[in-house]
């Protein structure tokens, strides 16, 4: 019965022309950027599962998801920020700076909770500075956070000679880095569950709350949003702070994975994050983007990197292949928009 309904809808959508139901489903899938990413991921998964015996194993999928968790968590915040028509280029430098500070705090206090709170607080402060300079001085956030990218990296270099080692030996800290929340029936590493929790929270925030609607409104048309009484600056500030705090959370996971705080961590991290958000369908022009798109894009880029190593390709391809995939995905998206006559 329900299958019948689907078929009917599909046929109506195609506008009376006779077509098989598969084309209708494909067309609907094709109607959004997420569909294209999903197709790319499925194709890539099938290819890798076929070529590498270890790809589709619990261990590899666990590693893959752990690897992408840091980019994904920051990208979730960045999605909100980019929807609100702002951007943050300083998240990579924060991986180093906040990571070092967090490890120093952990060493000094031997308290996991304090370390985490300090990391998040420093993140919030950096976010407030970004927001203050952008909104208070009226400078574009691209320039403000490019300057902060440089300043925060400088701060990271100042805060330690090279790296802060784990001297506190808090067992729970190691568990976050290398342990799993459950081992049966499937092993779920801590970073993965943290990523999932962050995703669900912000998915609900963006979909179901006034704040979420405000973010889209502010980015879509700031003047109209301001006229209709939306506190534009407050909404944008919140997005800046959320992005930085999630970047701090990523930094915390990173130091747990490395078992040290490195002042040279996170080079190029901002490009991975922003690249994933934009590939996921958001636009720097604001007002547009979804968390599902961001997550799918992160998975796609992470799987490419994972696959190249698994297949033992020449490491030189690690740079080229993601680039080619980005171009292809953007091309398919442009094609999709032309077919569906959607406005850019």
């Amino acid at each position: 019965m329900s299958a019948e309904t689907v078929r009917t809808t599909a046929e109506i959508e195609i506008g009376g022309r006779r077509a098989n139901p598969l084309a209708g489903a494909a067309r609907r899938l094709f109607a959004a950027q997420e569909g294209i990413l999903l197709l790319c991921i499925v194709a890539l998964f099938l290819y890798l599962a076929n070529r590498s015996p270890v790809f589709w194993t619990e261990r590899n999928i666990g590693t893959l998801l752990t690897q992408i968790s840091m980019v994904a968590i920051t990208a979730i915040g960045m999605t909100l920020l980019i929807i609100a028509r702002e951007v943050d280029l300083s998240v990579g430098s924060m991986q180093a700076f906040i990571g070092v500070l967090a490890m120093q705090t952990l060493n000094a206090t031997e308290n996991l909770f304090v370390g985490l709170v300090v990391a998040l607080l420093v993140g919030a402060i950096v976010g407030l500075i970004n927001a203050g300079l952008t909104l208070g001085l009226g400078i574009s956030s691209f320039v403000v956070t490019l300057a902060m990218f440089s300043i925060v990296r400088g701060a990271a270099y100042t805060s330690t000679d090279a790296a802060v080692q784990n001297e506190h030996k808090i067992p729970a800290f190691r568990t976050i880095g290398i342990g799993a929340i459950i081992d049966e029936p499937v092993r779920i590493p801590w970073p993965v569950i943290i990523m999932a929790a962050v995703f669900i929270i912000f998915f609900l925030v963006l979909r179901g709350t006034t704040f979420g609607r405000y973010i889209y409104a502010v980015g879509g048309n700031p003047k109209a949003a301001a006229l209709s009484g939306i506190p534009v600056n407050l909404v944008k500030t919140a997005c800046f702070v959320i992005t930085s705090m999630l970047a701090a959370l990523s930094a915390f996971i990173l130091i747990a994975r490395m078992n040290s705080g490195q002042n040279n961590a996170g080079f190029g991290f901002e490009l991975q994050v922003i690249g994933a958000v934009l590939l996921g369908g958001a636009s720097l022009a604001g007002g547009k983007g979804t968390l599902i798109g961001t997550l799918l894009a992160t998975i796609l880029l992470g799987t490419i990197s994972n696959g190249i190593t698994l297949l033992k390709w020449d490491t030189n391809w690690q740079t080229a292949v993601p680039g080619i995939v980005i171009v292809i995905a953007v091309f398919l998206d442009a094609l999709r928009r032309r077919v569906t006559r959607e406005e850019a």
Partner: peptide, 9 residues
């Protein structure tokens, strides 16, 4: 990052 993948393989 790269060692995690390589050790899986």
């Amino acid at each position: 990052k790269v060692a995690s993948d390589a050790l899986t393989a």
